[in-house]
Simulated assay, not measured.
Amino acid sequence: MELRIENMTCGGCARSVTKAIQSVDPDAKIETNPDARTVKIETTASQSALQQILEKAGYPATAS
C-alpha cells in the first residue's frame, strides 16, 4: 500500500513515520520518500490501523 503524508518533509519525519508503522507491525517493509511525501508499506496491518497510528504520531496519511 502507498500512503501520502503531507507533513513528512525530512529524514527525521521519515524516521518518526517508520517507528509509528513498526509499532503496529514490527515486520513491515517500509520505504519512505520525504521529497514526494509518500511511504510504501508491505504489511499485514490494515490501512485504517496504520492511518490511526500515524494520525496519533502527528503525521496524518491519505491513500495515494
Rank of each mutant, 00 (worst) to 15 (best):
S23V: 09
M8R: 04
Q51M: 11
A49F: 00
R37Q: 13
C10A: 05
V17K: 00
V39E: 00
N7E: 10
T9K: 10
C10E: 06
M8S: 05
Q51T: 10
T62I: 12
I41L: 05
A28I: 11
K40G: 09
E2I: 11
S23Y: 07
E55Y: 11
A28S: 12
R15F: 08
A61Y: 04
T43L: 05
Q51S: 03
S23G: 13
T62W: 04
V39G: 02
A57F: 01
I5V: 13
N33W: 06
I53R: 06
P60I: 05
M1F: 12
G58I: 07
A20G: 09
M1W: 04
S64D: 05
T43Y: 02
A57S: 13
A20R: 01
V17E: 03
Q51E: 15
A61M: 09
T9E: 10
A45H: 04
D25M: 02
V39D: 01
I53P: 00
A63V: 14
S46D: 12
A57P: 06
T44R: 13
R4M: 12
A28Y: 06
A14D: 00
S46W: 06
G11S: 10
K56E: 15
E2G: 04
P26F: 10
E55T: 15
I53W: 00
C10W: 02
V39S: 03
I5L: 08
M1Y: 03
A49T: 10
V39I: 08
A49W: 01
E42F: 07
D35V: 14
A14Y: 02
R37Y: 07
L50D: 00
E2P: 00
L54I: 09
E55R: 13
A14R: 00
L3C: 06
Q52R: 12
E2H: 05
S48H: 09
T44W: 04
Y59T: 03
D35K: 15
A57V: 03
G11Y: 07
A61H: 01
A45G: 09
G58Q: 10
E55P: 03
A49L: 07
E31S: 14
T32I: 05
E2M: 14
S46F: 02
V24F: 05
T32W: 00
P26T: 07
L50I: 12
T18N: 09
R15G: 10
T62C: 00
Y59Q: 02
T18C: 05
G58D: 09
P34Y: 10
G58Y: 09
S23Q: 13
Q22W: 06
V24Y: 08
L3I: 08
C13R: 06
M8Y: 02
N33D: 15
I30L: 01
I53Q: 04
L54V: 09
R4L: 11
E42S: 13
R15C: 07
N33G: 05
V24K: 06
T18P: 01
V17A: 01
E2D: 11
P60V: 05
S64A: 15
Q22V: 06
R4T: 08
D27W: 01
R4D: 08
A14E: 03
T43M: 07
L54T: 03
D35R: 15
S64G: 15
S48E: 15
K40N: 13
L54G: 01
R37A: 10
V24H: 02
R15H: 12
S64L: 14
K40H: 12
T44C: 02
K29M: 14
A28D: 11
I30G: 03
I30H: 02
A63F: 04
M8Q: 08
C10Y: 05
T62P: 00
